[in-house]
Design a protein around this nucleic acid. Structure first.
Lengths: 209, 209, 209, 209
DNA sequence: TATGAATGAGACTTCATTCAT
DNA sequence: GATGAATGAAGTCTCATTCAT
């Protein structure tokens, strides 16, 4: 497993405390635009407009448009991997761990929909950019976290042994993260309910007993 | 339900028989590039290079880059809706129909991976382009086809009645179409096997009996 | 009569005081090129070269090449209509008003030869561009100003009553504005002398008494 | 005076009798488009469309788009100069000659409005194209024809001697040829009536006696 | 004669980025 | 920190023209 603890943020500029607030604001604005329109379709002028400054002024805060994407993804993926690691370490049975991972994922979608959407939608782009190889690395780590749980569950008898774990993992992953495309954080449906529904279907199947 | 039978292709240029072959070739090339690099990231020069002609020569065949995307999507979505309609009409129980839809979807991913990827990945872009409103229309129609089957299955007792059909549909949809992101048409895993795996998990659940 | 007082300039970008100077410079350069080479034959690169910047930099100041033409024509035609209105309102007899309009026209040619040439030469083009419908509107208003004077002069006995006012107006108009094709603002012939010659011929005719 | 009798048409292709008809058709179509939309704004595709053939097929008849313009203008200007020469030679007094030139001009506008419009509107363009220097040459010749008549009329006492002949000529020229911008060959107003109006105004002036 | 495919130059425009103020 | 002007590369598209069929 590749080591990804505490993702290094080498190029992040030195900042005073006050500045940090402005950076975070701008990153939030950028993340929303990137998620909504797509990274390539979002211009630095779009970001500047949304922030109430000229596009050129963004370069006082960030080195480039790509640097903004980098900071958003780095923060997100580091946190995601860490919180998954915590769950894996803190629960007993594979079934409890899997349920924890799933519930945490839906909570993450609720909390950081833009970063999730970015991660979901810009896969093709990120694969082409060498500076973003860490995304693939962390992705692999996360995949390993999930596969380990599934394999352990099959071995322990928690899960069926006639399903291919790798294929099963992908079905679960796509259903879970695909939720970002339709779930509304401020809508009627709570993310906990979405998780309940998913777990109920996943564990029990679609057919009545 | 909006009527979408035989999607009109009003602006397609008049063509003789021989021309059609060249158009189809160019569209296939464009579809692959659009799917692989993303529509925005693909330049007309990329397409021209891949086809062995100058980018400007593409405009002898198509009005614009957008027109190429349009023709690809229109053909694909029209065909998809039609083949789903055939399945709905030709089977008896909701369970048989659902299985048919799912198997057909995996077969479609096998046959037209580029168009499927396009439809999956460019949602944000298409929503911004007024000329592509028909995509949303056909999408709604297809959603209705699937929801009808799920509702009928719940009513008939084929499917569990304690799951929200709308949420369940989205989970299924995202798993099925998300397959385009990892399935390899020429790989070891056949699309029929993927369908078997999915149906087994969907119907029986992850837990052993 | 269509109302054309103070032509709206809705899309003109918000600008500070300093910026206005650069805009005006660029517009003057563009106007000269448009008038000399023709609008279509003038490339944005021509304009950039003449201004000492890259063509793309023009788009920092204007939305498009067409927007430059628009601003030139809008300013010119609004001013022309206004100055004619002032003359119509400020003089007594039709003969005095007509003389005022004619002298003002020659003075305008002297002062803004490029805008006049543009208005003269690009009629065919402007008729095709929907964004320039205001040109036709103001033209109609100006025609009405002149026709009113001619009609009043015929009624008052100032002018002959055996000439068709509409046809006469066109002869006068074409002679007057056609001057822009040969008059040289910095040449020996003063615009006042041109006006004298024209009025002498127009009022007295070519034949000796 | 430059000699311009029988303008040479060196590059005109050898043609059979039948072909000539098609050439003439195509030139008429091109002339109308050039006059209506402007030479630069007219594409060879426009011409092809109007003629019912593909743009590339035009090159079986003409060497280039410019060659079409050349043939139109060469025919027109040669004919114009010749018919003016006939008038100058065939009448007695300067007044009769001037009246002849003016009536002939209006008749020409009636008969060949497109060629006249071309000659009027594309002055800026033609000045830039070396292949069209003959246009300036014939223009000078025609100017000389008119100025000779005016000078002769002043000397003979037919015309007032207190008007500058050169300036007067330009006023007349612009009024006469400017008519092409508003006269409708198939309208109610006959070109003879336009000529009557113009001569009445020119000779008698605008003021009542 | 006409078609259909292609060329090659050049047009307008966009956009991330830089920098003096 | 922010502005406003400018850069330079790149993108989409147009169009006169050529040529094999």
């Amino acid at each position: 497993m590749a080591t990804t603890e505490s993702v290094p943020r080498s190029k992040r500029r030195a900042t005073s405390g006050k500045t940090q607030g402005r950076r975070a604001e701008l990153l939030a604005i950028a993340a929303e635009l990137f998620a909504t329109k797509g990274y390539t379709q979002t211009t630095v002028r779009d970001i500047g407009d949304a922030a109430g400054i000229l596009s050129g002024s963004l370069y006082h805060h960030f080195d480039s448009k790509e640097a903004m994407l980098d900071e958003i993804l780095r923060d997100f993926m580091g946190g995601l991997h860490a919180s998954f690691a915590e769950i894996v370490a803190g629960r007993d049975t594979p079934r409890e761990v899997l349920e924890g991972l799933i519930r945490s994922s839906f909570a993450t979608i609720h909390r950081s929909p833009h970063a999730v959407a970015l991660y979901q939608n810009e896969a093709a782009l990120l694969a082409h950019l060498p500076d973003f190889s860490y995304v693939a690395t962390i992705s692999s780590d996360i995949t390993a976290q999930w596969l380990d749980v599934l394999d352990a569950g099959v071995a322990s008898g928690d899960f069926r042994d006639d399903l291919d774990a790798r294929v099963t993992y992908r079905f679960i992953r796509d259903s879970v993260w695909g939720t970002v495309g339709w779930y509304k954080p401020h809508g009627e449906l709570a993310h906990e309910s979405v998780a309940d529904q998913f777990l109920s279907m996943l564990y029990g199947g679609l057919l009545p007993r």
